[in-house]
């Protein structure tokens, strides 16, 4: 791999990182509006408000950058970057198509992805603590508790796929994928996707930012560009979790079309899952904090363990 190739892959990942989350955000605007019988943004950009998020970005960039007087300045300012950057690295490792259509093939890619996604939460903890605000601190605490509970089922569900494929490499997993993995790994897919939603703090698992209870959780004191970075990290998170679920459980680029169009399948599956994320947000109310914990420990983790056992048994039976 020469230098030009590396630079090209990095730039492509960066472009994906900056554009697809906006597409998802705009889709959320419109889908949510229509699911609620509204129209959503209609003016920015002319045609059905397609440029709404660009306008939002310009607005955020113009706002004053405020750091509360009692805050821990440096940590407060560093937090959005810590929250956002891990997702960029995760995107680098997600395969889009066959034959090396991936930012950087990593041998233990599955582990890399899960590990780095966990780091992003530290940014939210930093934001919650450094804001010198009770509600932010509560948000940070809830974030930490939620992450601790949902990391486990997520890793277990991912481990089930890794066992089935016999590799930790993401392209390797997609290569090993067969159609019958869908019924075989369906429980794991459910657990992974749900835990991913919880890790992103998307409704119905958005207690850490529950705006009607604790203002906006860890982001309460943020404004302007830093707040925009947090929002961007949420939408990149949707992209990453949807793409990961598509790659791990839905077979990534496998589909009726020839392999050259495999990337289209990956994108299609990713966006379908992103739509489901939005759909769930519109449909369900927020869970209570104790319900959230109970759901993780009494439903998701047993389910993940069942899936793991099932995978092991069938794997042994096949081989």
């Amino acid at each position: 791999m020469n230098l030009f190739d590396t630079v090209l892959r990095c730039v492509a990942t960066l472009v994906v990182f900056l554009t697809l989350p906006l597409v998802i955000g705009q889709t959320e605007h419109k889908v949510m509006a229509h699911m609620q019988g509204r129209l959503g943004p209609m003016y920015a950009g002319g045609f059905h408000g397609w440029a709404q998020l660009i306008a939002d970005g310009v607005k955020f960039a113009q706002k004053e950058d405020i750091v509360p007087a009692g805050a821990d300045r440096r940590i407060f300012q560093l937090a959005p970057a810590v929250s956002l950057l891990p997702y960029l690295f995760v995107l680098l490792a997600i395969p889009v198509g066959p034959d090396g259509f991936v930012g950087q093939a990593i041998d233990a890619g599955l582990f890399f992805v899960l590990a780095v996604m966990g780091v992003g939460v530290i940014g939210k903890l930093m934001a919650g603590w450094a804001s010198a605000n009770k509600f932010s601190l509560l948000g940070g605490l809830r974030t930490a508790a939620q992450l601790m509970s949902y990391e486990l089922p997520m890793v277990l569900a991912a481990a089930s796929v890794a066992m089935a494929a016999g590799t930790l490499s993401l392209p390797g997993i997609v290569d090993a994928w067969q159609w019958y993995w869908i019924p075989w790994q369906i429980i794991g897919a459910f657990v992974f996707f749900t835990a991913g939603l919880a890790e992103l703090q998307r409704p119905p698992f958005d207690m850490p930012v529950a705006d009607s209870e604790i203002i906006f959780g860890a982001y309460t004191e943020y404004t302007g560009l830093r707040f925009a970075l947090f929002l961007l990290s949420e939408y990149v998170g949707i992209l990453v979790v949807s793409a990961l679920t598509a790659v791990l459980f839905l077979g990534g680029w496998h589909g009726p079309l020839p392999d050259q169009l495999g990337w289209l399948w990956t994108l299609l599956k990713t966006f379908a899952l992103a739509f489901v994320v939005i759909w769930l947000r519109v449909t369900y109310p927020r869970l209570r904090e104790d319900q959230l914990m109970r759901f993780a420990w009494t439903v998701l983790i047993p389910l993940a363990l069942v899936q793991l056992a099932l995978t092991g048994i069938i794997k042994v039976a096949i081989s």
Binding site: A33, H34, M35, Q36, G37, R38, W279, V282, T283
Partner: peptide
């Protein structure tokens, strides 16, 4: 049922 409700609303004409 909840998911069906939101999906059905999405396909209907908006009231805006």
């Amino acid at each position: 049922k909840g998911l069906a409700v939101t999906l059905r609303t999405m396909t209907r004409k908006t009231v805006t």
